[in-house]
């Protein structure tokens, strides 16, 4: 058992962690390459940077937007993210492991705070799962991984909390620790290959949408028009032209 725990927190963790870092780097690079290609192919090359950056920043704090429509969901989700990010990165016990393997570590959060954050993550994770499973419209747009992820994320937090605070026998402790480590590794390795890749893709998502709406010239504006959002500041009556090239292409087409 001990050997498995050592393996999980040693070579296996190195594998998963390296895969996560490299995989995230890969997905960012691939996304950027894809964006550049799409941009070069676009008819409409005008990008409203101000609006895009504004949207990206405002979505980093979804409370303001979502509180209007779904206050409970947005609050639960926000708390869930905070606990999810802070606890594994700043837990004192994890920092000891870092120090052992790479020689340095950073500051830790107090154990009591970590405990509360863990409980919050567990509660929020289960709540998110139930909300998704019970709310009809959410269920309609959910894939399998959408159900699996909240539950999977809860597992290491639950086992970790039991290991730290539970009154359990040493044998149970080892089992709990084993589950904790292996589920943690599984999460780490799956991050870049599933929807959790949004942790690095968030800054790009608005840009991707912005570029993608412009394959045919003025498509975005036409959609906005159709949806009846003419009052939006980005909408213009006449489709915009980015490059002179477009007109030459049109001329050629006309000549043919």
């Amino acid at each position: 058992m001990h050997a498995w725990i050592e393996f999980g927190s040693g070579p296996l963790f190195r594998l998963c962690f390296a895969l996560m870092l490299l995989g995230l780097a890969r997905i960012v690079v691939l996304t950027i390459i894809g964006m550049v290609e799409a941009y070069l192919r676009n008819d409409d090359k005008i990008i409203n940077w101000r609006e895009l950056i504004g949207k990206t920043v405002s979505w980093l704090f979804p409370i303001a937007k979502l509180l209007k429509k779904r206050p409970v969901y947005s609050l639960v989700s926000f708390l869930f993210h905070i606990g999810l990010i802070l606890t594994p990165l700043f837990l004192a016990a994890h920092l000891l492991l870092w120090e052992k393997s790479i020689g340095f570590a950073w500051f830790a959060i107090p154990q009591s705070l970590a405990d509360y954050l863990t409980l919050i993550v567990i509660v929020c994770g289960l709540t998110l799962f139930l909300m998704r499973a019970l709310y009809g419209p959410a269920r309609a747009i959910s894939r399998k991984q959408d159900y699996i992820w909240p539950l999977l994320l809860v597992i290491p937090f639950l086992t970790g909390y039991m290991c730290v605070n539970g009154r359990i026998s040493p044998a149970t402790y080892q089992w709990m620790m084993l589950i904790h480590i292996f589920s943690g590794n599984l999460i780490t390795v799956m991050i870049p290959f599933t929807k959790i890749a949004h942790c690095v893709l968030t800054p790009l998502s608005q840009l991707v949408t912005g570029i993608g709406w412009k394959f045919p010239r003025g498509a975005g504006d036409k959609v906005i028009e159709t949806l009846g959002y003419k009052d939006r500041p980005t909408w213009v009556e006449q489709p915009r032209l980015g490059l002179e090239k477009v007109t030459t292409v049109e001329k050629e087409a006309a000549e043919k």
């Binding site: 070579p11 296996l12 190195r14 390296a18």
Partner: peptide
Amino acid sequence: SLGFIIAAAVGFALLSG
């Protein structure tokens, strides 16, 4: 790129801890 990163991660895991 997928092949590259998987192999690189295996390499990092195999290097001594």
